[in-house]
């Protein structure tokens, strides 16, 4: 049984923003329904208004703009998985999306929904974080850009204010010399992550010119592993350095014990996943080990 609500289907993004501003906090946005309907059924939310964004074609696109990719927030995970632009420009996002949920969910679930739901385990987040993606938010005050690292404020919480909608994700594309990979651990295929990690490295002259690592499900929000990154940048690209840097992940995270895994296990697995993601990222960067 779902709570009773009024259903709105705005014809444009502008109308959607206006509606949401008018209706205030009693309104919730729906796209794929994979989060909102579940929450409503569990009695976690009972909005008086539901605003349907699933028909807004203006936020449903994947555009290649040279050195960056723009992905409309209403793009489904299925469209992302099948996009040649994403496969070429942000392969680590495709890798993460491929392993997420089932076909049946991905046909309706959107990238915007995955991010706005702000689950600590949102698998789309770590790849976008290592790509230093920017989120474009549209609201009553106009447009603003939020670096993805500042978007999440807690479990289920984001910087979005009343009337604001996540409209698009701007992702700098992979450059030559870079390599990225995504790793996650689940008890079973298609299950929610116990922990996940994305890594992006750039190697030049046998050294890590750049290294970015992000983790999911091991802190109140998806997070960058800055200590791991610091331990890599500028250092020779050796397996030993990669190994010892991966161990820094333990200092970057704040995992909890829940039904999917204990804090201790998550700590250990964070190191394993970071190491594996980094190793594959190095291989993909085409850089031979120093």
């Amino acid at each position: 049984m779902l709570p009773e609500f009024e259903y709105h289907r705005p014809a444009s993004l502008e109308e959607a923003v206006r509606l949401l501003s008018e209706l205030g906090p009693d309104a919730k946005v729906i796209a794929g329904g994979t989060d909102l309907v579940v929450k409503m059924r569990a009695g976690l939310v009972s909005p008086r208004h539901v605003v349907d964004l699933s028909r807004l074609t203006e936020i449903r696109f994947i555009r290649d703009e040279g050195d960056r990719l723009k992905i409309g927030a209403g793009t489904t995970l299925w469209e992302i998985e099948n996009s040649r632009e994403v496969a070429r420009g942000v392969p680590v996002l495709r890798e993460a999306v491929e392993e997420m949920a089932s076909w049946h969910v991905k046909t309706t679930a959107t990238i915007g929904g995955n991010l706005c739901n702000a689950s600590p385990a949102a698998d789309a987040a770590p790849p976008l974080m290592v790509h230093d993606a920017t989120l474009v938010v549209v609201g009553p005050e106009g447009r603003r850009e939020v670096p993805i690292g500042e978007f999440f404020t807690g479990p289920g919480q984001t910087v979005l204010g009343v009337g604001e909608i996540l409209a698009e994700v701007v992702v700098p594309k992979m450059r030559r010399g870079q390599g990225a990979a995504f790793e996650k651990l689940t008890v079973r295929e298609g299950a929610l992550s116990i922990a996940s990690a994305a890594a992006l490295v750039e190697i030049s002259g046998g050294r890590f010119v750049d290294a970015r690592v992000a983790l999911g499900a091991v802190a109140p929000t998806p997070i960058r592993a800055l200590k791991v990154e610091r331990a890599l940048k500028g250092r020779p690209a050796t397996r030993e350095i990669l190994r010892s840097a991966s161990r820094e992940a333990k200092a970057d995270i704040k995992p909890i014990t829940d039904v999917r895994g204990s804090r201790e296990y998550r700590e250990e697995m964070s190191v394993v996943l970071v190491r594996r993601a980094l190793e594959r990222a190095v291989e993909r960067a085409g850089g031979a080990w120093a």
Binding site: Y7, I30, V37, S54, W78, H104, T108
Partner: peptide, 17 residues
Amino acid sequence: VDGLPVRSCLMLAPQVD
């Protein structure tokens, strides 16, 4: 829905309009 599999328990009825 339009040839692709979906979970009908997660889609609101008005969304199939």
